[in-house]
């Protein structure tokens, strides 16, 4: 019997067994991930000798009677939310004896060295376009003084207002 024919016959007999031997099986596992909206804010006070304070202070043009406070805020914000906006709200300053106030229409904010804006309205510091980005902000505060304001120590309250656009 020619050798080729022998091999052919052998293969015919063996091949089904080989196929069985090299068979593959697999198991599929369905995966589901539920990612929630998330936001992170971090801040610290900066003082006159802070580099950030000095850099931004040099960009502010103060009019006579306007006082730049010797402290500011450094803020970092980040969110994964597609329609989140975050604003800074400054409330009236209240004296420590709880009697006197300095209204927000006398308070101005320098945001990253930009032109002063009134603290009467919320200052937007994070827009939907900023999604995923780590946003850094240096906020300095200026008081437009007037004779009705009483000297003393005042309590400041800031709020980060987070909104989702419906």
């Amino acid at each position: 019997m020619p050798i080729n024919f022998k091999i052919f016959v052998w293969l015919l007999c063996v091949l089904p067994a080989l196929t069985n031997a090299s068979g593959t099986k697999s198991v599929d596992m369905q995966v589901q991930a539920d990612i929630h909206a998330s936001m992170q804010m971090q801040w610290h006070r900066i003082e006159v000798d802070d580099l950030h304070y000095q850099q931004m202070k040099n960009k502010i043009k103060l009019k006579p009677g306007w006082v730049l406070l010797p402290y500011g805020l450094y803020v970092e914000l980040q969110t994964n939310d597609v329609s989140r906006i975050v604003s800074l709200r400054v409330n009236n300053l209240i004296s420590t004896n709880k009697i006197d106030t300095i209204a927000t229409d006398s308070i101005y904010i320098s945001h990253n060295g930009n032109a002063l804006v009134t603290a009467k309205k919320d200052l937007a510091i994070l827009d939907p376009e900023d999604r995923g980005l780590l946003k850094k902000h240096v906020l300095l505060f200026v008081i437009k003084t007037n004779p009705t304001q009483k000297p003393g120590q005042y309590l400041a309250n800031f709020k980060f207002v987070s909104n989702t656009l419906p």
């Binding site: 006082v67 406070l69 300053l93 004779p147 009483k150 120590q153």
Partner: peptide, 10 residues
Amino acid sequence: MRMLLLILLL
């Protein structure tokens, strides 16, 4: 009015 002392962030 620089006499006005505003110590906000002590």
